[in-house]
């Protein structure tokens, strides 16, 4: 029960931070808040027993993303303009998706139960097979690199794709051939 309680508290904090992000117009503030957000969600992941994920989220979400966002802000502007459009459509979209999700989640199995399909069908297989088949005690690693190794290859490719894409966009060119893109100096 204490697990569930910690979980609840952390999630409530998360919701508060989210409201802060929505309302803050200073972009530096937003970046700081989103860093805190990432750390909080990493803690939630710890509570949910996802230690690998928590570690990644902490380093990527709180670390890498924040560095990138700050870098971007350094290169652009620090403040958000007031929006021209009335937020009716966005509210409608957000509420629509929310409602769809409410509709969808009402029948979901309750939190933390061991007898739901997720914990019955494929998941336990990994727990049971990892040691005898691969000899790796960290089941996340064995699933990541072996059972679903192809996903991870795809994930590596995603990183590679994004990296090349960013370099294509941002790398300083040796020669000035920017005549091709108007508006640039």
């Amino acid at each position: 029960m204490s697990e569930a309680l910690i979980n609840t508290v952390l999630l409530s904090l998360l919701a508060c931070i989210t409201i802060g992000i929505v309302r803050t117009r200073n972009l530096f503030g937003v970046v700081v808040l989103s860093g805190i957000y990432s750390l909080l969600i990493a803690s939630v992941m710890m509570v949910l027993d996802a230690v690998d994920v928590a570690m990644t989220e902490a380093s990527v979400g709180a670390g890498m993303s924040t560095v990138l966002l700050l870098g971007t802000l350094y290169l652009t502007k620090g403040h958000e303009m007031k929006a021209f459009k009335p937020p009716l459509l966005p509210l409608f979209v957000a509420i629509g998706v929310g409602a769809m999700l409410v509709y969808g989640t009402i029948d979901l199995p309750p939190f933390g139960a061991a007898d739901q399909p997720v914990n019955q069908h494929v998941g336990p297989d990994y727990l049971a097979r990892s040691k005898p088949e691969t000899g790796i005690p960290n089941v996340v690693t064995s699933v990541l690199a072996s059972y679903r190794g192809f996903d991870t290859l795809g994930e590596t490719t995603v990183v590679f794709t994004a990296g090349i894409g960013i370099l294509m966009l941002l790398r300083r060119r040796r020669k000035k051939d920017d005549t091709l893109r108007e508006g640039e100096k």
């Binding site: 679903r148 996903d151 795809g154 490719t157 995603v158 794709t161 090349i164 894409g165 966009l169 508006g183």
Partner: peptide, 25 residues
């Protein structure tokens, strides 16, 4: 289903990068 998502992202990210290489701003 999840593998489809990963490759969806591979194709999407490369598509964004390709589009951004277009003629003007």
């Amino acid at each position: 289903a999840f593998n489809a998502f990963v490759f969806l992202e591979v194709s999407s990210l490369s598509t964004y990068a390709m589009i951004a290489m277009g003629r003007d701003r």
